[in-house]
Simulated scan of single mutants.
Amino acid sequence: MDKKKLMNLIKKNEGRKLDFKLKLDLETETGKKELAKDVCAIANSKGGRGYIVVGVEDKTHSVIGIEEGKFPSEEMLQQIVSSRCEPPIPISLDIFNLYGKQLAVITIYNGDQRPYQVREHGAFYIRRGSTTDTMRKQELVSALQESLNLNVETCPILKSSVECLNMDIVHRYFKSKGIETNDENRDFLMESAGITIKDRETYKTVVTLGGLLVFSDINSVYIPHNMVRIVNNIRENIPKVYIVQGNLMTIIDESERIIKDILPEQFPSYAIVEGIKNAVLYRDYTSFYREIEVVIGYNSIVVSNPGNLIRGSFHNQKNFEYFKRNMWIYEKMITLDGGIRFLQNGRGFTIMKKAFRNKGKVKFINSYDSNSFKVIYPGVRNFTIS
């Protein structure tokens, strides 16, 4: 987006891909929901990229402007939209000075994940001219037919770059599939596998959400919520809080090392690590404002995971079945792992419960309201801490 493009937009009438607003009310929940609804409607409408221009009167196209320095950051806008829309909708923010007034332009990119819906009530919105309306049955069917592969993991991360990928991991993945990579076929293979994606308009190649999670050591630059936060409440001679980031395999291995450092030797730390593995594989990565958290205490150890078990997969306290939310990530991780970390005898929940037989009960808390899942283990009070 540049100033010339903005001036051309202001000359146009509102439509499916263009909305003028005098201001955004993002101080209230109602205003945040309205923004998510508008972004969702524009993203679902055909016609390439869409724009919300803030600071322009819609009928007269008069440039009124916004209060300088008061507009929310791009990160805040992304958080508002991503926490209320599913799959995540790629957006960006530009601030311009035009005719001595400041304007904000939110760009809604033309992604491959249509149709998008508002999480709160599951509605799908679309623009009809300059108004927002719910999608009709045939519009939904058409959008689904155009986008048969609805993987959240293949959503583009707009400002990412291929340079942030660890090519050793990329090569290892394809080699495990029996494919040798070289300079000639590497870019094609990565795009075919959903690791990267090419913007339809700019032809710029960016990395997908899943590509960053699995294949980038520095993905926290783009997706800072990808972390495991470990809180140590039992040892005074080591750090109180550990932040573990990196590619998903590194996060699992480093978390395991820290957990074993903190817990007494005879404690079944592998059961805690099993909970972390499940959280890393199946967490809701569209929850951009929360991380996986492990709190280690004398009375309990709690692993909190953003993303509840999907309805129908959570039966009762004795019978759990994890819905594989991130099948794209799951396939990549299993392939790279080669049977070292994930292919164990017994299911994850069974492993956790059996580890504490005669020591206490492992509890599983599934919350649809907070979109979270917790595993609560017995604490270390029954074990000796050296």
Rank of each mutant, 00 (worst) to 15 (best):
S192E: 14
F188N: 10
K177L: 14
L213Q: 07
D199H: 14
E180R: 08
V207E: 08
N182L: 04
K198P: 02
L189T: 05
N185M: 07
D199G: 15
V214R: 04
L213N: 02
G194C: 10
M190H: 02
R186A: 09
N185H: 09
V214C: 09
F188L: 12
M190Y: 05
N185E: 07
F215T: 00
D183C: 00
K198H: 01
E201N: 11
S192M: 12
E201S: 09
G211S: 10
G178P: 02
T196F: 03
E184T: 14
V207Y: 02
S176L: 00
T205K: 15
I195V: 15
L212M: 07
R200E: 14
R200S: 14
L209P: 04
N182Y: 03
A193P: 03
D187F: 03
R200V: 02
R186I: 15
T181M: 14
L209C: 07
K198I: 14
L189A: 14
K198L: 01
N185F: 06
Y203N: 12
M190E: 10
D199N: 15
L213S: 00
E180M: 00
V207I: 13
L213H: 05
T181F: 03
T181R: 01
E180N: 08
G178M: 05
D199C: 09
A193G: 06
S176E: 12
T205Y: 02
N182Q: 00
K175Q: 04
T205L: 01
E201L: 12
L209D: 02
E191C: 09
E184L: 07
E201Q: 11
G211F: 10
T202S: 15
G178A: 00
G178W: 03
T196R: 05
F188A: 11
E201A: 07
S176V: 01
D199M: 08
V206N: 15
G210W: 13
K177A: 06
E184P: 02
I195D: 09
T181D: 00
T181H: 02
I197R: 12
T208A: 12
G210R: 10
V207S: 03
